[in-house]
């Protein structure tokens, strides 16, 4: 589903590589944590998957596409295969919960009927049934992140990228979000989550890919945050 073949990314000529010789494969339905300190290359990894950045060398395949050969006008079709969730939720403050989720379908040209069917269904899935008409500022942080997840998942993409989705949430709320991501993963969606949250990684016992200074220093099937390498 996501394959990095010896990928190196150097932002500025002469600078230290943000990613170096990364060779990682995620299969369909995988759930993996991407861990590492700030500046270890997690964000660069996610940007390369979304083709916001292009690798300096190496090949990247996402959802059956060779990103090196993907014309820039085809990039939107790639992104429809990837849902993205961020630490800061990125909701539209002047739209209701329903409108925020529907927006993702409107802007890729989906029909009215499909939107009316899918949005309530997805809001039920993330546990926000009945809160369609709330504005984002009326919701708790956890609920806002659920809206963001609903928006990322409403088009049922095969891949869900999460960049520190629990970074702004308290531990109890974070557990709820993780349960939700786990549920989404069980529908066959590949989930890749970049995080700093030790507790969550340790609890989930999922695959852990650890980056340090742009290199993969650990790729463990049922890992914990940092125990083995200390």
């Amino acid at each position: 589903m996501i394959r990095f073949e010896y990928v190196t990314k150097i932002y500025m000529r002469g600078a230290r590589p943000a990613l170096e010789d990364v060779d990682v494969t995620l299969e369909r339905g995988d759930f993996a944590f991407l861990v590492g300190a700030s500046g270890s290359g997690k964000s660069t990894f996610l940007k390369l998957v979304l083709r916001e950045e292009r690798p300096t060398s190496g090949h990247i395949h996402v959802a059956g596409r060779d990103l090196g050969r993907l014309a820039s006008w085809r990039v939107p079709t790639l992104r429809r295969e990837i849902g993205a969730v961020f630490q800061d939720f990125r909701l539209l403050p002047n739209k209701t919960v329903y409108e925020n989720v529907a927006f993702a379908l409107q802007v890729i040209g989906k029909g009215k009927r499909q939107i009316e069917n899918t949005v309530p269904e997805t809001l039920d899935l993330v546990g926000l049934g009945g809160k369609e008409k709330r504005m984002p500022h009326e919701l708790s942080g956890g609920e806002q992140q659920r809206v963001a997840i609903a928006r990322a998942f409403v088009n049922h993409p095969p891949i869900l990228l999460c960049d520190e989705p629990t970074g702004n949430l308290d531990p109890a709320t974070s557990v709820g979000i993780m349960r939700l991501l786990d549920r989404i993963n069980r529908t066959g969606t590949t989930v890749l989550m970049a995080t700093h949250d030790e507790n969550i990684v340790d609890q989930m016992r999922k695959r852990v890919i650890e980056l340090r200074d742009g290199r993969v220093v650990r790729d463990q099937v049922q890992g914990v945050y940092g125990l083995e390498t200390v």
């Binding site: 006008w73 992104r79 539209l92 993702a104 802007v107 890729i108 928006r151 088009n155």
Partner: peptide, 10 residues
């Protein structure tokens, strides 16, 4: 930004 993220066309 959101439009780009969810794959809206140019």
């Amino acid at each position: 930004t959101i439009m780009r993220m969810v794959g809206s066309s140019k």
